[in-house]
Design a protein around this nucleic acid. Structure first.
Lengths: 158, 158
DNA sequence: TAGATAGTTTGTGTTGGACAAACCATTTAT
DNA sequence: ATAAATGGTTTGTCCAACACAAACTATCTA
């Protein structure tokens, strides 16, 4: 039997710290995003759409873990600003396929740029390399979630 | 002048993804933590106390970025369960120095253990090594925040 | 033709959290 | 020593996010 490792430190959970930072960022993002007419949760939806590709509202609700009725409202906001489009799925015309519009992608990029200062402040203790690491970890974590059926059939994002 | 780097990809912001995961974790944590009589935000407070050492309520409110009146309620909950203690600061007897009790530390460890399954699920796409990386990044980010005056005079955490 | 399913709308209730006001204990300034 | 400022507590009000239910349309499947 191998000797017990001397530093068997209890595995600390990231959850609480994660929420802690999410809160700090959200508070600041709220004000930074206001000129765009967006709220943090709009950004989340747009980001998910960009990261995971277009999906039906149902699977979007599943990913965001929001009640589907509330997703409707969220998408209404975004569609009103033409940041997303709802297209009828050709295979099943009951379905709405939600896609990020070009304008949506641009607006997302602009919003992200505006958020640079926010993250600079909140992640002051991390150097650019580490922030990159953090982003990549989150991105990877996001890519693996939920069954892959969430992505209808768009090649680019699947 | 150096040639422009070919892959000058726009720096993506972690904020939205961070919030996304925070939400996913919080929803699950809510039920896992219920048997402990704790809510996610209690865990955050305990974690901050453990990470940064004892601090006054004022600086705690600053770190958590919560209204101080709401911090009082939060601490009342925790003190009722003897997870924290409020001690009068000897230097300024108006101040309460909030300390994590031994019981608090144990309870926090137990809660974290209970959350293992939650993070296993949410971070399924990350291997243990990457989760460790994520945790360390968040920890480092947390250590550098706010002026160091938040920590009164306890050597272990400063 | 009868369900079941995807989405939408409306409405209700709960809750977290911001904010204000009034209060006590203590410290600091004049 | 008295006044003002500060740290904390309590209470109460208000709003936004959300979960949830119900009723409806359009579409697909049995």
């Amino acid at each position: 039997m191998a000797p017990l490792p001397l530093v068997a430190q209890a595995p600390r959970r990231s959850g609480a710290l994660l929420e802690h930072f999410a809160r700090r960022i959200r508070l600041r993002a709220e004000t930074v995003l206001a000129p765009f007419g967006l709220r943090p949760r709009h950004l989340i939806a747009l980001t998910v759409l960009q990261t995971r590709g277009s999906s039906t509202q149902q699977s979007l609700a599943q990913i965001l873990e929001m009640d589907s009725t509330n997703v409707v409202g969220l998408l209404n906001d975004l569609e009103a600003d033409q940041l997303i489009e709802r297209r009828r799925s050709p295979e099943d015309r009951r379905r709405h396929v939600v896609v990020l519009t070009e304008r949506g992608a641009k607006e997302l990029a602009r919003a992200e740029a505006a958020l640079a200062a926010v993250e600079d402040e909140v992640f002051a203790a991390l150097d650019p390399d580490q922030r990159e690491q953090l982003y990549n970890l989150l991105l990877q974590a996001a890519s693996g979630t939920v069954d892959s059926s969430s992505c209808t059939e768009e090649p680019p994002a699947c």
